[in-house]
């Protein structure tokens, strides 16, 4: 009787195993096929956010590279930097990437190929805070996981299971299918084409409510990983002899005190002998709706003035450095 049951269970077990193996095999095959197709078309995109990241990592040879979130993408005009500093420039900022984690990964991708002369890193309030979404947003680098091993250590910070997830060929391109499809089509023209990575915003801020003043004196918890990565970013620039300028660009609204992340960034920059320019509460920009499109972003007019100011500051800093060296 027991033998009968055992042989029956053994048969069922074997059958279940075979069926499951067949199922997994089909999934793996489809995953491999679609994943490779997506990878091919991801790297043949000709426009869009993902294309700009690929361009920064794989193609740009600009002397000046600008890093940062949307406040970099929409506020730093590379043409102005080229004209003022007589060096080629590319804006490698990306919307929504409000942490140095992403910027450091892209920098590693760039410095693997060549060494830029100047790097501008735009950082903002709360940059070093404990926001979990900063790690989720590293998903934007997933497509480079298999093709750019130098980025892996940063992408793996997203979760402890990241290496396992990347077994799938499709997963790195999760939720990207529409972008891959549309940005490969030549028929559709981009609404707002970028100017060497820079995306100017034409609109002017509409004032809908009374101006607020924000208290920024709170000392919140800082993320030690983000601090370490910022130091690594600085270290990479120092090692490759890249002139690094860390900048906090202007805000529209008045703040009392200085944001805790900015205070710490300033300290780190000072300790590493890096220039840090804080325009966050620059009176020239504060409460001037004609220069902003919203409370966080300068419009095209504002960006033009700001880019000129930053270029000027870099020139001055460069001169004083040269003088000091002499």
């Amino acid at each position: 009787m027991i033998k009968k049951i055992n042989s029956r269970t053994g048969k069922v077990l074997a059958y279940c195993f075979v069926q499951l193996a067949l199922f997994v095999a089909i999934v793996v095959l489809i995953d491999f096929g679609i994943g490779n197709l997506l990878q091919h078309f991801y790297f043949t995109m000709k426009r869009g956010t993902q294309y700009r990241t690929t361009y920064a990592i794989e193609k740009t040879t600009a002397d000046i590279i600008i890093f940062g979130s949307s406040r970099a993408v929409h506020q730093y005009d590379p043409l102005i930097f080229e004209e003022r500093l007589k060096l080629s420039c590319y804006n490698a900022g990306r919307d929504g990437e409000e942490s140095t984690l992403y910027h450091y990964a892209v920098l590693k991708g760039i410095t693997k190929r060549y060494t830029p002369k100047i790097v501008i890193l735009d950082l903002m309030n709360g940059e070093l805070g404990n926001q979990l979404y900063s790690y989720d947003r590293l998903a934007s680098l997933s497509p480079y996981y298999h093709t750019h091993p130098e980025l892996r250590s940063i992408i793996d910070l997203r979760s402890k299971h990241e290496t396992l997830r990347k077994i799938s060929s499709i997963y790195p391109f999760n939720s990207l299918i529409i972008s891959i499809f549309t940005n490969n089509l030549n028929a559709r023209k981009e609404k707002n084409p970028d100017i060497q990575g820079y995306l100017p915003i034409q609109s002017t801020k509409i004032i809908t409510k009374a101006l607020s003043t924000y208290d920024k004196t709170e000392q919140y918890d800082l993320d030690s990983i983000k601090i370490s990565v910022l130091k690594l970013f600085i270290g990479e620039c120092n090692q490759k002899k890249i002139k690094l300028f860390i900048i906090c660009s202007p805000y529209y609204e008045k703040e009392t005190g200085t944001d805790y992340s900015i205070v710490n960034i300033e300290k780190i920059a000072a300790s590493k002998n890096i220039d840090f320019f804080n325009f966050g509460q620059d009176s020239f920009y504060l409460k001037r709706p004609e220069l902003f499109c919203d409370v966080l972003h300068l419009n095209k007019n504002g960006a033009t003035i700001f880019s000129n100011t930053v270029a000027e500051k870099i020139m001055l800093a460069d001169k004083s450095r040269t003088t000091l060296q002499h």
Partner: peptide
């Protein structure tokens, strides 16, 4: 059914919200 459920798994990988 095998292909149907494979398709669902592929959809999870392709357009699922991972986090």
């Amino acid at each position: 059914p095998k292909f149907y459920y494979c398709l669902l798994v592929i959809m999870i990988l392709l357009v699922g919200v991972a986090d």
